[in-house]
Amino acid sequence: MKIYEKIAGWIRQNRGFAGALLLFSVLYLLYNILHPRGFSAAVFVQNSNESVALAFVAMAQTLPVLLGGLDLSVGAVMTLTSCIASTLVSGSPAEIIFGMFVTLLAGTAFGFMNGVIVVYGRIQPIIATLATGAIAIGLALWIRPKPGGDVDGDLNWALTNTVWDFFDTYGLDADAPWLRPFADLPVPVLILFGIALVVWLPFKRSVTGRTVYAIGSAEGAAYMSGLPINRAKIAAFTLGGFFAACGGLYLAIQTSSGNADIQQAGAYTLNSIAAVVLGGTSLLGGIGGAIGSLVGAMILRVISFYFRILSIDPLLQPLIEGLVLLVAVSFGAIRTLRVKNKLELFR
């Protein structure tokens, strides 16, 4: 009985996240049932490969949204870092590791710059990142005027397949008995959840992380309580830059190239907002989390997977995607029905 109460309490506190998780589970289960080769490692690997970049960008978007702002530069930072990675991540192992390090550092530094502009320039996040997004795209175009690049082939193969392939590529004992249970898991999923667990969860539990939530709920109250407002804001944007860089690095490794595509950057930014909302994070700030956005991004991707197996007219795909998004966010309207005092609507 105790455990049920606990679960019920958790669901009540994380309604949006629980809903997203349920929606994703149902959608993905049904997808695998309908798919002729469903529940196989090949399908799992392919699906996760296509979701990773968006999932990282959605996690990057979560932090500014928790503050009550918005980051319009996440897609551009992802593009910039993928262009950097496409020039640096090749050669000897030391060079590869150095390249990955520089890529992640560049994205993190860009996020830090966003934070400094927002905090010390006191410019609204949405408009500040609109401008820095243009700068990021400019830098990306400067690094890579034409699509192309070179990324280490072994790395590409090892990171975009199953754990077995990862061990096999690097000459490790891929058939070791202890590896059996994990052998069929896709590496991209492990990377995604690994970074979420190692970076996001400790951050969320730290004072800085809790301050981010407090700022989103009521900035004035957070300030009066003596919380480190400036530090939390800068940290949030910096961590956002880091997540975007993870997405860019993975995209470069996955496609073995970089492409400074303005349209693509914009599409990633807009999809990241949709993923954040689907994952149960409030655009007003203070409620939600990066794991939810991760699930939200996967929901968006699963919807597009359906088009392949259901042989829907490709011309109708954008329409259906749009309608699903619109209907999903309209569930937020349930809040308005529960509100007792009409003035609460105007927050």
Partner: peptide, 16 residues
């Protein structure tokens, strides 16, 4: 185009 985007963004930030 690269330089244009960078200048464009810098101008917006600078003006604000």
């Amino acid at each position: 185009e690269a330089g244009r985007q960078i200048i464009y963004g810098t101008v917006i930030i600078g003006m604000l």
